[in-house]
Design a binder for these strands. Structure first.
Lengths: 184, 184
DNA sequence: TGTACATCAGTGAACGCGCGTTCACTGATGTAC
DNA sequence: TGTACATCAGTGAACGCGCGTTCACTGATGTAC
């Protein structure tokens, strides 16, 4: 093990990256410092060389999760040859997105936790929500109301599809949301 | 304090009722047995005269929360002179519903927790979701896909409106969803 | 370039705390006679 | 109806556990000369 400044930055990066995935999978309450540090290949005692408190880690992980999931969606859309509404619907409402919450939309994964959480968490989510809605607006002819409603539909469909124990119903929810948003 | 059979039933009722509210406000992880029993006016030791485990309490509280919130919405619609789509949109997407999660839709409040939770929890949510979607179908000319998408929009809008720190944006989300669903 | 020393990332034991669960106990309830 | 006894809802102390946080220590890093 090294102790250089570069090593520290690398450790910090690794911790936040793992936390950004875990927080989407397991929620704010699902992150424990010993578990997180072990996953990063470190012992829990070193945690406070990187963060003043658990709260600060949560804030950094949330911020990272939000940036990561937006970057991912933009990248995936670019690959498909430009951001169209249909390409966004297809990737957001894809079973793979439902099945990989740790790599998926952080706004959806964290909405309930943040609704119950600290003001700082709400500020982070709100800022990223505004950005996502603006992107959707551009795809919907600058119709802000339609963009807000469409985003609600996306988030609701993803969360319901994850909460249901019948795979057929889960798929049906994703398809129904896709059709509703594509048709309109 | 009494110890009659009637007293026991009353205590059980009180514990589950409080848990059904708390689980919507604070989530599955936000319920603690000592806190819950104290809120019910009892000491924590008596908990296991009523439930085999914390898991069983969670299941009963979930079931109760789901029944309660559906009963409430049906009752409120009956008062307004019959269940119409507009009356449902107005009550579901009302700021009061957003501000009182403990009395509100359990499917929305618990969707993320249940998505991360035990199969038993998913079974409960799925059963109640099917019921709610059928009610929505009746209001939407038996269009199942439209009902599924509309339900996703309702849930997504409610959760996003709770997660945001700007009251104007929060209201805007509720209005946008209402307009989108009423217009279609 | 080589040496002495301060810094600090990471270690692992220890802390106090609240949790879920167990248990011996209490006293009112409700049944058997 | 009255008495003796079993039941069991509720009490409160105790348990082991994992948590967030603290701390003395270590040894590699990086700087001053």
């Amino acid at each position: 093990m090294g102790h250089s400044q570069a090593d520290k930055a690398e450790s910090h990066e690794r911790i936040v990256g793992i936390a950004a995935r875990r927080i989407r999978e397991a929620g704010v309450g699902g992150i424990s410092i010993p578990e997180l540090m072990a996953a990063a290949g470190l012992t829990h005692g070193g945690f406070y060389r990187h963060f003043a408190s658990r709260e600060q880690l949560i804030a950094e992980a949330l911020e990272r999760a939000m940036s990561e999931s937006k970057a991912r969606s933009v990248r995936s859309l670019a690959k498909r040859g430009g951001a169209t509404l249909d390409s966004l619907l297809n990737s957001y409402l894809h079973p793979q997105h439902r099945d990989e919450p740790g790599k998926g939309c952080a706004i959806a994964a964290m909405a309930v936790d943040v609704g119950r959480g600290e003001p700082e968490q709400k500020e982070i989510l709100t800022r990223h929500l505004r950005g996502s809605v603006e992107e959707l607006e551009a795809l919907l002819g600058e119709d802000r109301q339609a963009a807000l409603a469409a985003f609600a539909t996306l988030v609701g469909a993803l969360l319901l599809s994850r909460a249901v124990d019948d795979p057929a119903l889960s798929d049906e929810i994703l398809r129904a949301a896709k059709n509703a948003l594509a048709a309109g």
